[in-house]
Design a protein around this nucleic acid. Structure first.
Lengths: 260, 260
DNA sequence: TTTCGTGTTCCGAGTGGCGGAACACGGGTT
DNA sequence: AACCCGTGTTCCGCCACTCGGAACACGAAA
């Protein structure tokens, strides 16, 4: 009859003032009304009240009960420094190291610039094929898995503008050179969640690529697992898609990407 | 003979675990080595050690003693939300966009904290000069146009208190360092309605700055139009004062400032 | 008037924070 | 080898601080 006597819905016991303070800080940025902050933090009302006073006093939180709470100057300053100090290659390196041990293929991580992708990490498998890539190398967006995965999350007009500026240069005989074909390809990338490159940039080289999101949720980076074509007949590079997605999501999380 | 019995070199007494945790969090983003964090925070070594463990455990700080500490996923996520939730930036952004198209200079919008200004918006002109500023950067009040425009609307005793606390540090050889001179300058800012900075904060950089009022009518933000000195001989940055005032008033209005 | 939902304050109990001090460890110097 | 010095880590007893239930204050709605 009676249901569970008391449901402890709070995520963690969280004894310790510092933890609670962080919890309140976090909650105060999600909600602005006092009662909602209490709710979101899962702490006692009086506790939240006291900690909130400290945070306001320290100017990490601004506002008051009647006008609502929001981020304060010191938090903004802190936030600016935190985000400015983010170094992808440092953060992603351990994830890439684990991934390369798992799939034994060459891994790349790249950042999107205006018109192309630039490699920021390259990690070879135990038996490196001679791939003509290196950190700092710029590659086209339309003819690589990593580029397509970024383009897939660009607004269509930005893609159109890119085509307008640099065109769709041919790299191999499978390179996509038609804007409409590219649009269809990008739609399927969005649908799958990852991109494939079946020798469109370099003959004999294939890859699966997954999107990396930054703290705003924007796809600014890509991760790819590369191999030479038809290494094992009957298998496809696509079988590594789950691993690529998992690694990319992990890096996104480390970068502070919202939700999953 | 007897020296001072105990020198409290720490900026504030700071009793309370939450305050200390914030102090450590802040320090950890400035320094990466454990000992430097201890130094920067002004707290006891053991205390920093324990709080740092909590922060790492909560994923607000990443890294460890040997590889150095840096911002962790949860802090980045928090930082992203904090900066994104600053309603002033959302509200002011379109106004700033229009303004930059109009005057083709770098525009800043900043918020006042107790002792300094913190940039919340930076928007470059089409030909960006390399300005050493970024969102989240804290700048002095007495040596910047944006700071002076805010100080001008502070009660004199608050200004005196500020001088008392942080002084009037020299930034360039035109920086105002005399309290009386500052008082005269602030009076003329009030009279004109805008402030000028003729290289008082950074040599070769000039700006006009106008006050932004929040919903209570208090001047809590400033907007500035910056340029490099003597870009066009015979012209002055002051000629942009009307535009700065118009844009600042527009933002004030959007924030719900009383009367115009 | 009563009720509800806010936000605020109080205060006793006891626990978790505090930080000096001692320890561990590694890389230099003699 | 013996020493030192600068790292980071752990220990532990005292007591200040946190904790949170409960009571309170206030305004708006019923």
């Amino acid at each position: 009859m009676t249901a569970l006597p008391s449901i402890d819905r709070s995520p963690a016991p969280s004894s310790g003032a510092s933890e609670k303070a962080l919890r309140v800080l976090d909650a105060a940025l999600r909600e602005s009304r006092f009662t909602d902050i209490v709710q979101a933090s899962g702490l006692a009302k009086a506790t939240v009240h006291r900690l909130l006073q400290v945070l306001v006093e320290q100017e990490y939180i601004a506002g008051d009960a009647e006008s609502g709470y929001r981020a304060g100057p010191n938090l903004l300053s802190l936030a600016g420094r935190a985000l400015a100090s983010v170094d992808i290659s440092q953060i992603a390196q351990p994830v890439v190291d684990r991934l390369v041990a798992e799939v034994d293929c060459t891994i790349h991580v790249g950042v999107a610039s205006e018109t192309e992708m630039v490699y920021v990490i390259r990690k070879d498998a135990s038996k490196p094929y001679s791939m003509r890539s290196r950190v700092g190398l710029a590659i086209p967006m339309h003819s690589t898995g990593m580029g397509k995965v970024v383009l897939a999350y660009w607004p269509p007009e930005k893609v159109a503008e890119l085509i307008d500026r640099v065109g769709l240069p041919v790299r191999t005989d499978t390179t996509i050179t038609d804007p409409d074909a590219l649009a269809r390809e990008l739609a399927s990338v969005r649908a799958r969640g990852y991109a494939l490159d079946m020798g469109e940039n370099e003959v004999g080289t294939v890859c699966v690529s997954a999107p990396i999101r930054d703290h705003t949720g924007a796809v600014t980076h890509g991760l790819s697992i590369s191999s030479i074509a038809l290494e094992h007949p009957g298998t496809s590079i696509e079988m590594f898609a789950p691993q690529a997605l998992a690694a990319a999501d992990e890096i996104s999380r480390l970068l502070g990407a919202p939700e999953l």
